[in-house]
Nucleic acid binder design. Structure first.
Length: 294
DNA sequence: CGTATTTGACCGCG
DNA sequence: CGCGGTCAAATACG
């Protein structure tokens, strides 16, 4: 009960920001992405903190919080079977699920893209038993290039065509790679106006390797909390067309994303060796429409 | 012509 | 052996 105040404060803040965002997006008067991003990031941050607070402060028994079986017990400590390095690495990846719902208010909207600020490359799609729609698998585009371990899977809800479950695996570590040619020794800081977001690589001992990037947020405050997330989420309009269209179509839309943004970078080395942390989040975001392109 | 998607085969785990 | 996940060849895309 002591945390109630802080919790409420965060929630209020989140709500306020959300309202602002919604208003802006509703207007659809060419909102600069920077604004969108920053606001979205703030919202995310606030909400995440709220949730973490709530979870840690009320681990007892959440009233009327049935929740779905999203939180699966993670695999226990397995023996290491060296087979495929990549696959093996997957042992200690964080996994969190975000529920994304598209708003039908989009009229004339063609497709919406969930721009989470990262480029994803689809590498598979499978039908899931018990689920009406297939699940799409995505990996960070730069895994090839920079070894970014991030991946995500998008699964459309069984009934609600606008509801999607996006499960993120691992954290992004990729740095945007804009210039291709580029000069050999001409890379310092990019005059990017894009507001950075906070990415917290957290370990049991907090070995964050946050270089001196531009941090407008206050990592200190957040570092107190235990958390780890990537700035991923957002949604866009989607027109409710034939729900029976291609499932893959929709799933794709959700998964696709092509925009720049950035996240702090973590050391290429993998963190967390035996620390197994599992973050289960269940959130439902509902925003209005905005204009994007696919 | 290079890169992202698609799609079925393949593989490991339960 | 079935399911969920990944690979990889073929294809679409720009």
């Amino acid at each position: 009960m002591a945390n109630g105040g802080a919790l409420l404060e965060e929630l209020a803040r989140a709500l306020d920001l959300a309202q602002q965002l919604e208003a802006h997006l509703s207007r659809a008067s060419s909102p600069p992405e920077s604004y969108r991003c920053s606001t979205a990031a703030e919202i995310l941050s606030a909400i995440q903190k709220s949730i973490l607070m709530a979870q840690s402060s009320a681990p007892g028994s959440p009233p009327s919080d049935g929740a779905s079986p999203l939180s699966e017990s993670s695999a226990p400590e397995f023996r290491d079977q060296d087979r495929k390095e990549m696959m093996k690495k997957r042992k200690t990846l964080h996994k969190w699920t975000t529920r994304v719902r598209l708003n039908p208010s989009a009229a004339g909207g063609v497709e919406g893209t969930v721009d989470d600020g990262h480029s994803w490359r689809k590498y598979g799609q499978k039908d899931i038993l018990g689920s009406k729609h297939p699940r799409a698998y995505y990996r960070c585009t730069y895994q090839n290039t920079q070894g970014c371990p991030a991946a995500k899977q998008v699964q459309r809800s069984d009934d609600d065509p606008l509801l999607f479950d996006v499960t993120y695996l691992g954290t992004h570590s990729c740095r945007q790679k804009p210039p291709k040619g580029s000069a050999p020794t001409l890379a310092h800081k990019e005059p990017k106006q894009s507001p950075n977001r906070l990415l917290l690589s957290f370990q049991s001992e907090m070995r964050v390797k946050t270089e001196a990037l531009d941090s407008e947020e206050d990592p200190a405050a957040i570092s107190s909390l235990i958390g780890d997330w990537s700035p991923d989420f957002l949604e866009s309009p989607y027109q409710v067309r034939s729900l029976d269209a291609s499932d893959s179509d929709l799933t794709d839309i959700i998964g696709r994303s092509n925009r720049e943004s950035d996240s702090s970078f973590v050391d290429m080395d993998f963190l967390l060796d035996e620390l197994e942390l599992e973050l289960d989040l269940e959130q439902s975001f509902q925003f209005d429409a905005s204009v994007f392109f696919s």
